[in-house]
């Protein structure tokens, strides 16, 4: 668990990479002359005395002499040495993907966030500040959060609260994919709120941008005002559109904003603007948002930023955090770790 909450503790590499070892080994010629051994020199060996090379050659000679006698044991020893080396060497995936943790620890992350949420719920609402942190290095773009959100809120066809944007970066052969889940940013200065002509959307004291479906007239001005395209309109489509009958799951009501909403044409939320609300109905019941608990890579974190001990407080204090379109001054409550 601590692996995640602390800065990534990358082991000090024993092996000096060519780029690290200065001009001596940085040229292709030098590497060729040394037969590659230059690149494998350890840091604490002095290049002038070259004891490492002597030891290496002596070891090789001894191995050749004893080889015929003790081949099986040598193989085992070699494997053990290799294993030891790999343990000492920096883990490339660690450098790339940040800290990792095993399944039990990951479970503890969820438990910790859950406990922190329940602790926060004991405070008055205005003393909570919900934030979400999404670690883009861990997001695999699987879409589990998107689907769990749809399932939790019974979103109809054409409505999505948390799509995952995928971008292909670089050009072949240096390419990668970046997956960026995009929930509602729950902006502190939300541009969608002041434009509503009937006060159907507002910011709760805990920071969640709330909506009243019964108040919304469906003018869609808030949708034009959102720089994140985070609001979608419920056109009243079904997933079973064009099939003989509506499916039972489409008859099941949802409980957004702690109210019961039945999906029916002409009745809210059909004809309304809809958006992610951090599963406020679940939060109010002391539970984490669905996208947090269903993320297979444990890439989404949620909690109270007003609690200095909370996981999200630790995460958003890091220097590798960003917010989308920060230059607009909307001050989103969704942070990304890059």
């Amino acid at each position: 668990m601590d692996n995640l909450t602390e800065e990534p503790s990358i082991p000090e590499p024993k092996v000096a990479y060519p780029a690290m070892s200065g001009a001596r080994a940085s040229t292709p010629e030098a590497l060729l002359k040394s037969g590659g051994a230059e690149s494998c020199r350890t840091r604490d060996e002095s290049p002038g005395g070259d004891p490492g090379r002597k030891q290496f050659l002596a070891g090789i000679a001894a191995l050749v002499g004893l080889g015929a006698l003790s081949m099986p044991s040598l193989v085992r020893a070699g494997m053990a040495a290799a294993a030891e080396d790999s343990a000492d060497a920096p883990d490339a995936s660690l450098l790339r993907d940040g800290p990792r943790f095993d399944e039990d620890e990951a479970e503890n992350i969820i438990v910790r966030m859950q406990k922190e949420l329940q602790t926060a719920m004991r405070k008055p609402i205005e003393q909570r500040k919900w934030v979400m942190v999404i670690d883009l290095r861990k997001c695999t773009g699987c879409g589990a959060c998107t689907i769990s959100c749809i399932a939790e809120n019974h979103l109809p066809a054409g409505v999505v609260y948390r799509p995952v944007m995928e971008e292909e970066l670089g050009t072949y052969p240096n390419v990668s994919i970046r997956s960026t889940p995009r929930p509602c940013m729950q902006c502190e200065t939300a541009p969608c709120v002041p434009v509503c002509p009937v006060r159907a959307t507002w910011i709760r004291p805990d920071g969640i941008v709330d909506m009243d479906y019964d108040q919304c007239i469906g003018c869609r001005y808030c949708m034009t005002a959102c720089p994140y395209h985070a609001r979608t309109f419920d056109f009243g489509y079904d997933y079973s559109e064009g099939t003989p009958a509506r499916q039972p799951y489409e008859e099941v009501p949802n409980y957004e904003y702690n109210k019961r909403w039945q999906q029916r044409k002409g009745r809210s939320p059909v004809g309304n603007v809809r958006k992610c609300h951090f599963c406020s109905h679940k939060i109010d019941a002391g539970m984490l948002p669905s996208c947090v608990t269903t993320c297979i890579g444990y890439a989404t974190y949620f909690g109270d930023a007003n609690d200095p001990e909370s996981l999200v407080s630790e995460l958003i204090s890091r220097s590798n955090k960003i917010r989308l379109k920060e230059e607009m001054g909307t001050r989103p409550r969704v942070f990304y770790l890059i």
Partner: peptide, 13 residues
């Protein structure tokens, strides 16, 4: 936000 174009497919998105 260009990625939003392909993020979720529906005629209304």
């Amino acid at each position: 936000m260009e990625g939003i174009k392909e993020a979720f497919h529906h005629p209304k998105l």
